[in-house]
């Protein structure tokens, strides 16, 4: 499978990573190389095999419903690049 520039541009957009137009070709080549490497998997017969999403062979552990966390807004905001009046901020969004 080889990826064209347009596809790479679309992936970069989905991943929210700026890719300069000049780099698209090179990246397309690299990503295509990786895809052709992983494409060997198509030789394997996986009929009737369930995907193994985790090796952990447990049920999902549950916690009790109790307030045990939060209540530390300063710590949550301590690393924020731009916090105002207890809020995180982002460039203005128009809905």
């Amino acid at each position: 499978m080889s990826l064209d520039k347009g596809t790479v541009r679309a992936i970069a957009e989905l991943a929210r990573i700026d890719v300069p137009e000049d780099d698209l070709d090179h990246l397309a080549g690299e990503l295509s190389g990786i895809l052709s490497f992983v494409e060997h998997l198509s030789e394997v017969n996986t009929d009737g095999i369930r995907p193994m999403n985790s090796v952990a062979d447990l049920g999902l552990p549950m916690r009790t419903d109790a307030v045990t966390d939060g209540g530390y807004a300063e710590a949550v905001l301590a690393n924020a690049p731009d916090a105002i009046e207890g809020f995180f901020t982002v460039p203005k969004v128009v809905e």
């Binding site: 992983v38 394997v44 095999i49 369930r50 995907p51 999403n53």
Partner: peptide
């Protein structure tokens, strides 16, 4: 890709 890989992963395990 993803689903196929996780199936082959089970075979490896």
């Amino acid at each position: 890709y993803y689903s196929k890989a996780q199936k082959v992963r089970r075979l490896i395990a």
